[in-house]
Design a protein around this nucleic acid. Structure first.
Lengths: 218, 218
DNA sequence: TAGATTGTTAATCGATTAACAATC
DNA sequence: TAGATTGTTAATCGATTAACAATC
């Protein structure tokens, strides 16, 4: 069976469709055409139809798409119909902030554990979750059926902790450390990087180049 | 003057080059060829040379690139040679975590103010920065030459606060709210979105589809 | 000079958009 | 049935990769 793999660009757009469809649901919109949706999202209707048809035909000619149905189907594609247990490794500011972020729970991402190496943090609780030391990690992962590990720790420790997590059976890493973990990990591990400082630099670039353009015109 | 505008894909890679060159500097590496760098970064050397040549010729035939020079030049392109004052609007978990994140400061992004609408938070300090109420925002922006506003507030308030910020002269928004601000803002405002939950959904998709592939093979 | 490696043009690949037959 | 809109094929556009002449 030859499986056409879906491009990253498509996958990146799926959560956005999901969000817009969720908004429509809140306004009790029942159906929508790719054209209408494309106008709201400022994309082409062709793109919407192409993207969706990677996964199947969810619409109906002459009618469009049923909002609830499409929303839920995209949810399934994204795996949002299941609960995913997460641990956060690194209970500093960012780690604690993410642990407090209840909106992830609504999509089925449940933070069940918080870990750190700093003994001072031991048993401090964040939203009822006690901070544990790394030596408990292996057992905890097994007992709580943890699927995803969030890495909010210094670059210097990210690599070794990632290796540890793989040993313990984790197959998905949400990486906030300033390093490209994917480069040395086996291919069967999925990594999603969130490089905040790089995002900020892109913003800075755009601000800069806008200003320069502006100056030239003056 | 016809300015070829630089594609988003290129801009996204610049901070990554900057990071790798910074790492090389730490190891006191003086020069590097596009080939060597491409091997470390797992990209093609062609791409590196093409990307850089959007901004000028930073290398030398037969030699390669001087690491320090290239690093600093990319820094300038990204606007990292200047200090950028930021305010954070929304002093919840994420806002406070970002305010505490000193690594931004090292790249020249200085958080000078923290704002919220919740009076309970008034004058609470985070890393020495007092949380202020929104009515002080306009004056604060002017007096502190604030360039960038970070939005860590609920989706429901993001739009109106963004409009306010524009009135007050802000031209760059770093948006963490679950909404696409860019869609209704004037084009001279630069927005960089960080949609954490969408990132998590992409991770979930990849985890899912890996598992499915695996099951089929079994 | 000979060797190395850039800067840049040309070829390829993939993603987006347009068009339209199929069909509700 | 007529109108609307999908699913899908074909055309276009842009980004990546390959190739190589220029040059240090």
């Amino acid at each position: 069976m030859k499986e056409k793999s879906i491009s990253k660009a498509v996958i990146k757009r799926l959560p956005k469709y999901y969000r817009y469809l969720g908004d429509l649901l809140e306004f009790a919109v029942e159906r929508i055409s790719s054209k209408e949706l494309s106008e709201q999202m400022k994309v082409t209707s062709s793109q919407i139809r192409q993207d969706l048809n990677n996964f199947g035909g969810f619409g109906q000619q002459g009618y469009g798409y049923n909002v609830r149905y499409l929303h839920d189907e995209i949810g399934k594609i994204l795996g949002l119909n299941k609960i995913h247990n997460m641990v956060i490794i690194g209970a500093g500011n960012l780690g604690q902030a993410l642990a407090n972020y209840i909106s992830f729970e609504r999509s089925g991402f449940r933070t069940v554990g918080l870990f750190d190496v700093n003994p001072v943090l031991q048993d401090v609780t964040v939203r009822g979750i006690p901070i544990r030391m790394l030596d408990e990690l292996q057992e905890f992962i097994k007992e709580n059926k943890v699927e995803i590990a969030t890495l909010t720790l210094p670059k210097s420790k990210a690599k070794e902790v990632a290796k540890l997590l793989l040993e313990y059976g984790i197959r998905a890493l949400w990486n906030f450390a300033h390093t490209d973990l994917n480069l040395f990990l086996p291919r069967d591990v999925v990594v999603e990087n969130v490089h905040l400082s790089e995002s900020l630099m892109q913003l800075s670039y755009n601000l800069n180049s806008y200003e320069e353009k502006h100056k030239i015109k003056k």
